[in-house]
Amino acid sequence: MSLYLQRLEEVKNFFDNKDTVLGYRKLMDCAMDTQDMDIYKKMIALTDWKEQHVNDETGLISRSMEVLSLLKTKKVEPTSAQGPVITASDITKTYGRSGFQLGPVSIEIKKGHIYGLVGENGNGKTTLLRILARELSNTSGSLNYVFKEDITSDYDLRAKLVYIPQRTATWYGSLKDNLKFVLSNYGVAPEENETRVLMMIARLGLWNYKQL
């Protein structure tokens, strides 16, 4: 049995045990992995129904099982093993006035992996992240980025890197409009843009806040 089908079986077990909160999250994860816009639209419609019938557990389970049956007909290939997309070698950052020095730090970051960066306040966690995201220059050491798409400029590279700071800038307009604006800058067509944005809002549990 493939990993994808195993995950679908886990979803069924959650709903069989009436753990609808975790079951629904896992169902959305599996739906998102299909990258199928028709599946996305079904999950969006189900999320809208779910928020309007918050006490109808039986109805939610029944409708979720219908989507689950459809997901079983889809083929999702696992991400193949790849080399690192970011390699940092002996990175340092020195601030002259304060005398603070970060590093040297070496790290490899691979696609599909999750990393934790742990340390006391003031130890340079944010500095390292900003260097990796090319928001800060490093004093010494080297950085190497590998992406499938050709990177011909610093702008192209920055478009592939996302860094979310502890304090974000003020957004103007609604949550939905801001996310649609980002995707439009990446050339996503209008209908797909709308579908992808609503699916992500649903997955993050922000359905009732999308127009705020």
Rank of each mutant, 00 (worst) to 15 (best):
M199L: 15
A45T: 07
I109A: 07
L3I: 13
F15R: 04
M43A: 08
K26E: 14
Q101A: 13
C30A: 15
L212Q: 14
Q211W: 05
L204V: 08
N123M: 10
Q52A: 14
L71Q: 03
I91Y: 02
M37A: 13
K41Q: 15
E135W: 01
L8Q: 02
E66T: 13
L175S: 07
N55A: 12
I91C: 05
R25C: 00
D36V: 06
T168K: 06
E66C: 01
Y145G: 06
T34E: 08
D29G: 13
V67M: 09
D16E: 14
R167A: 12
L204N: 11
E10S: 12
M28T: 01
D19Y: 08
E9I: 08
Y155E: 15
L143T: 10
E108F: 01
T195F: 04
E51R: 05
K93A: 11
L179M: 15
V67N: 02
L206V: 08
D90A: 14
T139F: 02
I86N: 05
M65E: 12
G103V: 04
M32A: 14
L5W: 01
W49P: 04
K110Y: 13
L46N: 05
A31K: 01
L5N: 11
G187N: 08
T73Y: 00
P104D: 10
K75S: 13
D48H: 11
P78K: 06
G122I: 08
L60E: 04
L132E: 02
E194H: 06
V76R: 04
S184T: 13
S2A: 10
N144M: 11
G205M: 06
K111H: 05
T47P: 00
I39H: 00
K41Y: 03
D154F: 09
N55D: 13
F181R: 09
N17K: 10
K110C: 07
L46D: 01
N178R: 02
C30T: 08
I151A: 04
T92G: 09
M199K: 07
Y155K: 14
K50A: 09
K26L: 15
Y145M: 03
R7Y: 01
M28A: 05
L129N: 00
Q82S: 15
G103Y: 03
N121F: 06
A133C: 10
T139S: 15
R130H: 03
L102C: 08
D177Y: 05
D36Q: 02
F15H: 02
G122H: 07
I107R: 06
G23K: 03
S69T: 12
I39D: 03
K180F: 01
T73K: 13
Y172A: 08
M1N: 08
P190D: 11
L161Y: 04
K18S: 13
G112A: 06
N178H: 12
D90K: 14
T87Q: 11
L71A: 09
R167Q: 14
S174G: 09
K148N: 13
L68G: 09
T20S: 07
T152I: 07
L157N: 09
K111F: 00
R203H: 14
V197N: 02
K42L: 12
V85C: 11
G173Y: 00
V105Q: 05
P165D: 09
K41V: 07
N17S: 12
D177L: 10
M32E: 04
N55V: 04
T92V: 10
D48E: 15
L70D: 14
T58H: 05
D16V: 09
Y24V: 04
